Simulated assay, not measured.
Amino acid sequence: MFSINNIQNKKPYYLFSIPLLYRYFIKLVIYIFLFILGLIVSFPFLWMFTTSFKTLEEATTTSLGIFPSHWQWENWLRVFQLAPFGKYFFNSFLVAGIITIAVCLNSILAGYVFARLKFPGKSILFAIIMATMMVPFESVLIPNFILISKLGWYNTYPGLIAPWCANAFSILLLRQAFMTLPEDYYESAQIDGCGHFSFLLYLSVPFVKPALITVALFTFLNSYNSLLWPLIITADEAKRVVQVGLTVFSGDAGIRVNLLMTASTIVALPTILIYLIAQRYFFQESIRVGLKG
Results as ranks from 00 to 15, higher is better:
83 A>Y: 13
97 G>R: 08
91 N>K: 02
102 A>R: 02
73 W>E: 01
63 S>P: 00
102 A>Q: 07
78 R>L: 14
68 P>G: 08
79 V>K: 01
100 T>V: 07
77 L>D: 02
91 N>S: 02
100 T>S: 07
97 G>P: 09
61 T>C: 00
65 G>A: 09
83 A>V: 08
74 E>G: 01
97 G>K: 11
61 T>V: 07
98 I>G: 00
69 S>I: 14
88 Y>F: 15
98 I>T: 01
60 T>H: 00
61 T>E: 14
75 N>V: 12
93 F>T: 10
88 Y>E: 04
66 I>G: 06
65 G>E: 08
95 V>Q: 09
83 A>Q: 10
89 F>K: 04
92 S>Y: 09
71 W>A: 07
82 L>D: 05
98 I>K: 03
84 P>E: 12
92 S>G: 11
97 G>Q: 09
77 L>C: 01
63 S>H: 07
84 P>I: 09
76 W>V: 06
69 S>V: 14
82 L>R: 02
93 F>G: 02
102 A>C: 14
88 Y>M: 05
87 K>E: 08
101 I>L: 15
86 G>S: 14
93 F>M: 12
72 Q>W: 01
66 I>Q: 05
89 F>W: 05
92 S>Q: 12
88 Y>W: 02
99 I>C: 10
71 W>H: 01
72 Q>F: 01
74 E>T: 07
86 G>L: 11
90 F>T: 11
73 W>R: 02
91 N>D: 00
98 I>N: 03
72 Q>N: 10
64 L>V: 06
98 I>H: 00
64 L>E: 02
98 I>E: 03
64 L>A: 09
64 L>W: 04
88 Y>T: 06
85 F>W: 12
85 F>K: 05
63 S>R: 13
78 R>I: 12
101 I>T: 14
69 S>N: 15
99 I>S: 05
92 S>E: 11
85 F>A: 04
81 Q>I: 06
69 S>E: 15
102 A>S: 15
65 G>H: 02
82 L>K: 08
70 H>G: 07
83 A>I: 02
89 F>Q: 03
60 T>M: 13
62 T>V: 04
62 T>I: 07
93 F>A: 11
91 N>Q: 03
102 A>D: 02
95 V>M: 12
63 S>N: 12
61 T>H: 04
74 E>F: 11
76 W>F: 15
75 N>L: 04
71 W>C: 00
61 T>P: 00
102 A>N: 01
67 F>P: 01
93 F>W: 12
68 P>D: 07
80 F>R: 08
85 F>Q: 04
72 Q>S: 03
74 E>N: 15
60 T>L: 13
68 P>A: 06
97 G>E: 11
59 A>N: 01
81 Q>L: 10
